[in-house]
Nucleic acid binder design. Structure first.
Lengths: 217, 217, 217, 217
DNA sequence: AATGAATGAGGGTTCATTCAT
DNA sequence: TATGAATGAACCCTCATTCAT
């Protein structure tokens, strides 16, 4: 950890770990079964605690879900926003870096199932939808738009319609993780080749964004 | 009675209409809330009947759902398969026709919400997943693959990897309807411009399929 | 029937047969499943009529059941009572005749299942219990007691305790039919040999009733 | 608390007692109303808990019923089997002892109503029938047959047909408890004199089993 | 902090009975 | 007379949430 002399007794460290264990269990089950179909008793059991204990840390199911999002997707977004703000190179590299690190940190992991889940169940849990839209979707859109605008401003990208291209860029990523987590769909699980998909997607996307060859400096 | 030409009593006409009324109510609610979250009592109420009446027409919730699929998506697939078998022109026109008629008949309507629903809940309802995969997904894949193979055989398309391109073609369509029915996502509902999206998609798809200009006859 | 020139058209004869067809269907199902577990819809279907039609003939489930009893067991009791009243021979012969004709008409047929059914479900249907007790049980007890008293009066039987012996005589008969209709019990269905059982029972019963050999005239 | 020797808190003592309280309530109602007609809510209420609580202890209605059987009849059978295996005296005494202890532990109590219930409802609940046949009926038959064989082997009983006599011995016992629990039947409840019935039955049974006086040692 | 027993509202399904035709 | 569509109360079972310990 940060403190190499961890002065706390093992028992207390265990206690501190509880929320993390609960979040880990929760994300597994939420992604596997969806929000509504996940039973808090199962979450508690998987975390090795009792059902009542769960309520000591999270007031209810929705708060638990929010905590899952806050503990997984939101921090990534924060870091990505920072790296966008600090980046100094070519906007195409920035875009590629953001997408690949998204795939590395989110897309590949269970966390990406949260996106599919929200798409499916937002209608039944308006407060959750609002939370997710504000904490995740809006920030992602803003971040990608920012990259595009940066690229356009710096003449590294063509003068595209930023709003639409933002959506065009997000769509295939969403699709990729949706299929990855679904039991039906055009891709039997072993047919899905995410890496090849990503490569093709990036080629296409950057090909569409970079200025015509003749126009480059 | 009031209309002497209609020999059926009003009451019996209702009976004939009931299944359709129930299916209409069911599709509304299934698409709005998902399979698990839809209460049969609500379906019944929306159709203007009592809970018990629903069971006169459909054995249980899963059968009601299957009936919805059989009454909306499956017939379209059948017709599309026929039109593919009978078609005599250029494969690009066939592909365009199938996709546009899909948009017309399925994509635009509530029915398209079924796809999103199945993607989300298949894991929790394995029998439904099996049904949908067999009755819909497999047939759609086969149909699109058939079109691609036809195009390749007739030298109207390039010699693409049919299996993968089938998936690449399906993905944006799925995405389009998924966002259309979701309360969260990168597209606020009024930002989504399906027609423009479709045009762009078809341009891209056909651009990728047609042989290089020099090779065309 | 009584009128050899049956002037009624076949269609109307059919109508007259309805109640009998319903009773036949009802007894099948009541005996097979019990009173509560029998669905009137099944009764109607087996009789080849609609559920509503059943209610034209019997006001409700309990009345249907009573009609079954009235149409099967009660007439037999009436005849048995008559034959008891008219009989002129030895009381042992009378008892044997009554028991054997019971076996012939009731015990062997489905009707005997009614006895088991009432024993089991009387507690849940007090009105039915009252009806059955009055229309069947009390009359059977009275009839057998009458035979015993007749035998004792005529010095054909020993001076037994009529009340208790009545029960002792009824018990094995009830048992026989109960097992005949049950899916559990000490007798796998093919082990039960009713005829042998009856012979043994009659030997025992009459052996216990007839006066000691030395006392006979 | 009030009793310092009892280290468990009152609340936990309740938890330990719950299963027994629920079984007690269940047996009352099952015997009173039968399996199908017993509502779990009533069982719960009679045990002083809510409907949901019942499911903390028993997975479903059938399991509750099995628990009732396992907690009442099955243990008795186990003990009886042991006492049969260990017994060293005359087989007639063994038979008498087994029957009288059955009457003491089962016949006299509500538990005996289970037998009547199963006879009546086995047809509608095949899994329950299988369970009861295996756990109870088969073992009882085996036990009684064992006693009879023992008696025959030791020349304490005549060489009877063991299979049939087993059934003949069981029949009156079944009948006794069936009437005891029934609202209809030849015995108004206050006329039934079980003790006298048992005495007569044992006299008869042993009379039929013991070798003729002249043959005894 | 931790437990886990208890709750009770709610959803799927069944079926006797009614009633317009 | 005959139909069968419609009803609605009832029952089994689930699960988020509470709370005494």
């Amino acid at each position: 950890m940060q403190c190499p002399l961890d002065s706390k007794p093992r028992w207390e460290r265990r206690k501190d770990a509880r929320p993390q264990e609960l979040l880990a269990a929760a994300i597994d089950l939420f992604v596997e079964r969806g929000f509504a179909a996940t039973r808090l008793e199962d979450v508690a059991r998987r975390a090795g605690v009792s059902k009542g204990t769960l309520y000591l840390y999270y007031t209810n199911k929705e708060e638990l879900f929010k905590a899952v999002v806050r503990g997984s997707i939101v921090p990534f977004i924060g870091e990505a926003e920072e790296s966008v703000a600090e980046f100094e190179g070519h906007s195409a590299d920035l875009l590629r870096q953001v997408i690949l690190s998204w795939w590395d940190r989110i897309g590949q992991s269970k966390v990406s199932g949260i996106g599919k889940l929200m798409t499916a169940e937002a209608g039944n849990f308006p407060e959750l939808a609002k939370f997710y839209q504000e904490e995740v979707v809006v920030r992602v859109i803003r971040m990608i738009s920012t990259i595009l605008e940066r690229g356009v401003d710096r003449n590294e990208f063509r003068a595209v319609n930023v709003q639409q291209v933002t959506r065009v860029l997000m769509a295939p990523m969403m699709m990729l993780v949706t299929w990855k987590h679904s039991a039906v769909g055009p891709c039997a699980s072993d047919d899905l080749q995410p890496q090849a998909f990503l490569d093709a997607f990036l080629d296409m996307a950057l090909g569409g964004l970079l200025p015509p060859a003749g126009a480059r400096q």
